Computed example of a mutant assay.
Amino acid sequence: MIFTYNKEQVGDVLMVIVADDQGQAVAVDRRGPVARVFRLDTDQTVAWNIFDLSQVIELEGSGQVWLTDEQVAQLNASLAAQGFTEQLINDREPKFVVGQIVSMEAHPDSDHLNICQVAVGQEEPIQIVAGAPNAAVGLKTIVALPGAMMPKGNLIFPGDLRGVASYGMMCSPRELALPNAPQKRGIIELADTAVVGEAFAAEKHWQG
C-alpha cells in the first residue's frame, strides 16, 4: 500500500495505491470526500482518493508519505462513515532494502535478462528478473520491494518479464536519483559489509 500526497501540485488529496490495475479499465465510486477506484472486470480496489485530507488528518511531506497507525485509523473511520466496508492496512516496513544475489540463471526467452534469487532479509529469497549487465552471484545491491515508489513516481508491483514472475527491482544509482550517479546501466554495487535486509539510507550506502 502506497500513500502519496502533493498538496501544492495536486491539492489536498491523499492518494492510496492498493494494487496494480494491470492496464485494465477502472471505475470510480465517490461518496463525499472518499473515492474508491476499482477494476471493472474484477471489482478489485486498486486505489483510494481521500479529498480535503486536512479536515481528517494533518500530513507533512510530498510524494510518497508514511502514516502513523493512528492516522490510518482516522482514515478508516472516514471510509466507514461513507459506507465503505474495506479498511486500509498500514504497512511501515521499508521498501528499499539491501539485497544480495544468491543465485542467477539466464532467462529462457531472452539474451540479456537473468532470473535472480535475491536475499532481502526475509525467510526466503525473492525472485527478480533483471537485465543489469553487472548482476552477479554474491553482489549486494539495493532492492525496491513491492509497494515502493521510485523517485520519478513509478510504482513497484509484482509482475512478470517475458513470462517469468518478478517480485521487485534491483536499482541503479540513477534510478534512485543519487547524487553524482553514473549515467550508465548497472545496479548499485554495495560494500561486502552492507547488511542484507537493512533499510536503504543514501548517506550510509552511497559514496558517489
Rank of each mutant, 00 (worst) to 15 (best):
M1L: 15
I2Q: 00
I2D: 04
I2C: 09
I2T: 08
N6S: 09
K7L: 03
E8W: 06
V13L: 01
V13E: 12
L14P: 00
L14A: 04
M15Y: 14
M15V: 07
I17S: 02
V18F: 07
A19K: 15
D21Q: 12
Q22H: 15
G23W: 10
A25D: 10
D29G: 05
R30C: 02
R30Q: 11
R30H: 05
R31F: 05
V34I: 03
R39Y: 07
D41S: 13
D41W: 02
D41C: 09
Q44V: 05
V46A: 01
A47I: 09
I50S: 01
F51T: 01
L53G: 06
S54H: 11
Q55T: 14
Q55R: 15
Q55P: 05
I57H: 11
I57A: 07
E60V: 02
G61Q: 08
G61T: 04
S62T: 09
G63V: 07
W66C: 15
L67Y: 13
L67R: 07
T68W: 11
Q74S: 13
Q74N: 08
L75M: 08
A80T: 11
A80F: 02
A81G: 09
G83S: 12
F84I: 14
F84K: 15
T85V: 14
E86G: 10
E86I: 14
E93T: 15
E93Q: 13
P94E: 00
P94N: 06
F96I: 08
G99M: 08
G99V: 08
S103C: 02
M104L: 15
M104N: 10
E105F: 03
E105S: 13
A106S: 15
A106M: 11
A106V: 04
H107Q: 13
D109E: 01
S110F: 05
I115V: 14
C116Q: 12
V118D: 13
V118Q: 10
A119E: 08
G121F: 13
E124N: 10
A130D: 13
A132G: 06
P133N: 11
N134R: 02
N134E: 00
V137K: 04
V137F: 00
K140R: 10
T141V: 02
I142Q: 10
I142K: 09
V143T: 09
V143F: 06
P146K: 14
P146E: 15
A148H: 09
M149Y: 04
M150I: 10
M150T: 14
G153R: 11
N154R: 05
N154C: 15
N154K: 12
F157H: 14
P158I: 09
P158N: 08
D160V: 00
D160Y: 03
V164C: 05
G168E: 03
M169C: 12
P173S: 05
P173H: 01
P173I: 03
R174Y: 01
R174S: 03
E175P: 04
E175Y: 07
A177Q: 11
A177C: 07
L178G: 00
P179G: 01
P179D: 01
P182R: 06
P182N: 00
I187A: 01
I188P: 00
I188G: 02
A191P: 00
A191T: 11
D192V: 06
D192Q: 05
T193K: 11
A194L: 04
V196Q: 00
G197K: 00
E198K: 09
A201G: 04
A201W: 14
A202K: 13
H205S: 06
G208I: 06
G208L: 09
